[in-house]
Amino acid sequence: MSTDTIGVAIIGTGIKGITLALGLMSRGIPVRVYERARDFHEIGAGIGFTLNAEWAMKVVDPRIHAAFKRVAMPNASDWFQWVDGFNEPGTDPRETEEQLLFKIYLGERGFEDCHRAQFLGELARLLPENVVTSHKALDTVEPAADKSLGQLLRFQDGTTATNRP
């Protein structure tokens, strides 16, 4: 059984996990990211970000925003619109006008969106090679026997890690 020592453990290499890792590392906090899969992947098609979300990217780590801009495309509308897609009177939804519930004006520029997998790929390229450990499915988290080591992460393959150097 091997044991790694890290500052902050992040479980999962999705958009949130990688964004958190980049933000912490940009502030000098050591991280280790554990992923149960063998590589980075994202499920889903698209994701859109408002100007506030883009501002938050810049605050967390400007490289995150730059990664988004490399794959971003402008949205076709300046409005977010919510429609009632559950109460259509017809049998074919393409022939039925959905009732508009409400809409919010996003400004002249609106928002930009991108394909999730492309954005994840751009984020993954920003991580140093030694930060991510693949094939690590978390089993349990418990206090380490030595309290100075913080929490003990146990993985399904029998290995462990602590979250304090």
Rank of each mutant, 00 (worst) to 15 (best):
143 P>A: 09
90 G>Q: 10
132 V>P: 01
99 Q>M: 11
135 H>T: 13
98 E>T: 11
86 F>A: 15
140 T>F: 03
116 R>K: 04
92 D>H: 03
79 W>E: 15
69 K>L: 14
77 S>E: 09
114 C>K: 02
69 K>V: 13
123 L>F: 03
118 Q>A: 05
63 R>P: 02
107 G>K: 09
114 C>N: 05
95 E>L: 12
130 N>M: 08
107 G>W: 01
71 V>E: 08
91 T>R: 00
95 E>I: 10
65 H>F: 11
115 H>F: 11
149 L>Q: 11
126 L>W: 01
64 I>P: 00
98 E>I: 10
85 G>F: 01
99 Q>P: 03
106 L>A: 15
108 E>I: 12
110 G>I: 08
115 H>W: 12
64 I>E: 05
98 E>L: 11
152 L>N: 06
129 E>D: 09
102 F>C: 06
104 I>E: 13
151 Q>R: 09
61 D>M: 05
147 K>D: 12
112 E>K: 10
86 F>P: 05
68 F>E: 07
76 A>K: 12
92 D>F: 00
106 L>W: 02
128 P>W: 00
123 L>V: 05
139 D>Y: 04
101 L>N: 10
124 A>Q: 01
113 D>H: 04
66 A>N: 12
79 W>A: 06
82 W>H: 07
117 A>I: 11
148 S>H: 07
89 P>Q: 05
126 L>G: 04
153 L>S: 00
116 R>Y: 04
110 G>F: 01
135 H>S: 12
105 Y>Q: 10
111 F>V: 14
94 R>P: 00
100 L>G: 11
136 K>T: 10
145 A>H: 05
92 D>Y: 02
71 V>H: 12
99 Q>L: 07
94 R>Y: 02
123 L>G: 02
137 A>S: 11
118 Q>H: 11
127 L>T: 13
67 A>R: 03
153 L>M: 13
79 W>V: 07
101 L>H: 03
90 G>E: 12
62 P>C: 07
154 R>E: 01
122 E>H: 00
68 F>K: 02
85 G>V: 13
101 L>F: 04
113 D>T: 09
69 K>N: 15
79 W>S: 10
78 D>I: 08
124 A>H: 07
78 D>N: 12
151 Q>H: 00
60 V>Q: 03
85 G>I: 07
112 E>P: 00
133 T>I: 03
146 D>A: 15
67 A>N: 08
121 G>D: 14
110 G>V: 10
66 A>T: 13
72 A>T: 04
99 Q>T: 14
155 F>V: 11
144 A>T: 09
155 F>A: 08
131 V>H: 05
93 P>F: 00
152 L>T: 14
96 T>F: 00
124 A>I: 05
65 H>I: 03
97 E>H: 05
59 V>D: 08
129 E>F: 01
93 P>L: 09
112 E>N: 13
97 E>K: 10
134 S>V: 12
75 N>V: 15
125 R>W: 02
89 P>V: 05
103 K>T: 09
138 L>F: 09
140 T>N: 02
125 R>N: 12
75 N>H: 14
100 L>C: 06
150 G>F: 05
142 E>S: 08
77 S>H: 09
